[in-house]
Simulated scan of single mutants.
Amino acid sequence: MSTDDDRIAQVEHHFGVRFPQDYRDFLGTTGSLSRFVPPADDFLVIDALDELIGNNEAGEFQRRFPGAVVIGGDGSRELLVYDFRQDTPPLVTLDVSAEDWSSAIRQAPSLTAFLEGFPRTGWNWGDDTEPPPA
């Protein structure tokens, strides 16, 4: 097992989850990102592995949202979250002030689908029941 795999496994153990393989691959290669994404021109942040535990603890997200792991966001109030209440955890957004899961807005079924569709669609702000297909 590589050092990256060990670090990923430690963070997974902390949250009591197994990250989807495409997210594990992202963490082991790209690692993180923070930039405007054209042509959607929306800002996207995906946190580095070393930031995940601290960022999640700072907002008490596991207490407020059991099964949530925040992995990034829009650089402002919207958080990009894995919903581990489901066997195959989708990505959703939650506002930092959300009180419960009813505020979640589905973004994509996987990180791969999210990253492939994001340049065209940007964030789904809840205007539709589902984001456009990737």
Rank of each mutant, 00 (worst) to 15 (best):
D100N: 10
R63G: 10
G122R: 03
V45E: 11
P90M: 02
A113R: 01
A108H: 04
L44C: 01
T129V: 14
A113G: 06
D87M: 14
S110A: 06
F61W: 15
R18T: 15
F26D: 05
G54K: 06
D42M: 07
R120L: 08
L91M: 02
N124A: 04
G28A: 15
V11F: 04
D22I: 06
E57C: 05
I105P: 08
Y82F: 13
N56L: 06
L27A: 03
D5Y: 02
G67R: 02
G16D: 00
M1S: 15
Q21S: 03
T121C: 10
G126Y: 04
P89A: 11
E99T: 15
F84V: 05
D25W: 07
P109H: 15
S102L: 08
D127I: 11
D50I: 09
A108S: 08
H13D: 14
P119Q: 00
M1L: 14
I53P: 05
S76C: 11
T112Y: 13
L91P: 02
V96D: 06
S97A: 09
D100M: 06
V96P: 03
I46L: 09
P20W: 01
T129W: 15
T121K: 12
L49C: 00
D95W: 14
L111V: 02
D22T: 11
A58N: 10
P89Q: 11
D100W: 09
D87V: 12
P90A: 00
D128E: 15
S102H: 10
R85S: 08
V96N: 10
N56G: 08
G28I: 02
S34F: 09
I71Q: 00
D87N: 14
S34Q: 12
F19H: 00
S97H: 13
Q21C: 07
L27W: 02
G31C: 01
I71D: 02
F43L: 01
D100L: 07
L33Q: 12
I105N: 03
F118L: 07
P38V: 07
S102Y: 12
V81F: 01
P89S: 09
G126L: 01
G31S: 02
R77N: 15
T88E: 13
G117K: 00
D100H: 08
V96I: 14
D42L: 07
I53D: 05
A58I: 04
S34Y: 07
A58E: 09
L52M: 09
F19L: 00
G126H: 11
R7Q: 13
A40C: 13
S102G: 11
T129L: 15
G28L: 11
